[in-house]
């Protein structure tokens, strides 16, 4: 497997949202606007890359029976670090995403990549995998956010181009499921040809 394909797999073949269908909780809950989706994606990317690197280093020396607790401690540490950093330097983003930042600890994507990839591969491969999957997640969330924001609020990234209220349902939970479902159909029809 070439380095390049490890990186691009995260976008298409292993796209966490549309193919693996992992991490649905933040996907559905935080994509009310394009900006929120982007911020959530980047926060997850940060944790994913760092935890992949550390876990690929730790994996050979960690006894098999305690590997899950060790991974969770590593992941939780990075999430807490991220929380402190966001609180200090991007308080607005921290306020909007709020509860969903600590929930990255239990995001299946992070532990999933640790178990499925990082503990069997070297540092560089794990880094690339983290970047690929993380960016795939970020792009997917941003796209869902853009669609929901256009339909629900008539704006993109806060820039309003349709006056009025938009379709309220798309801002709320049912709209999240609808948009996710239709995007998944389109994704699988046009992009995932393997």
């Amino acid at each position: 497997m070439s380095k390049w394909s490890i990186l691009t797999d995260g976008f298409v073949k292993n796209n966490p949202t549309f193919v693996l269908v992992l991490g649905m909780c933040p996907t559905l809950a935080t994509t009310t606007s394009a900006m929120n989706g982007l911020e959530m994606g980047l926060a997850t990317l940060f944790v994913l890359v760092l935890s992949n690197i550390v876990i690929s280093l730790l994996a050979p020396v960690v006894p098999d029976k305690v590997h899950i607790p060790v991974y969770i401690v590593v992941i939780a540490t990075f999430v807490t670090v991220l929380q402190f950093i966001m609180q200090a330097y991007t308080p607005d983003a921290y306020k909007t995403l709020g509860l969903f930042i600590p929930l990255i600890v239990v995001n299946c994507i992070v532990l999933g990549r640790a178990e499925a990839f990082a503990n069997k591969h070297g540092v560089l491969e794990s880094l690339l995998d983290g970047v690929g999957v993380g960016l795939g997640f970020t792009v997917s969330l941003t796209v869902i956010g853009i669609v929901r924001e256009i339909l629900g609020s008539g704006s993109v990234f806060g820039w309003k181009f349709i006056p009025g209220d938009g379709i309220l349902a798309f801002v709320m939970a049912p709209g999240a499921f609808l948009v996710l479902g239709y995007l998944m159909v389109l994704f699988n029809k046009y992009l995932k040809k393997s």
């Binding site: 960690v62 029976k65 305690v66």
Partner: peptide, 26 residues
């Protein structure tokens, strides 16, 4: 992958990981 699990190395490993992580957080 992974080393053989014995009580001693499991306890040691978890303690070390937790220590390092708390130090980073501090």
């Amino acid at each position: 992958m992974a080393a053989k699990s014995t009580l001693k190395n499991m306890a040691l490993c978890l303690t070390l990981v937790c220590l390092v992580c708390s130090a980073i957080l501090a």
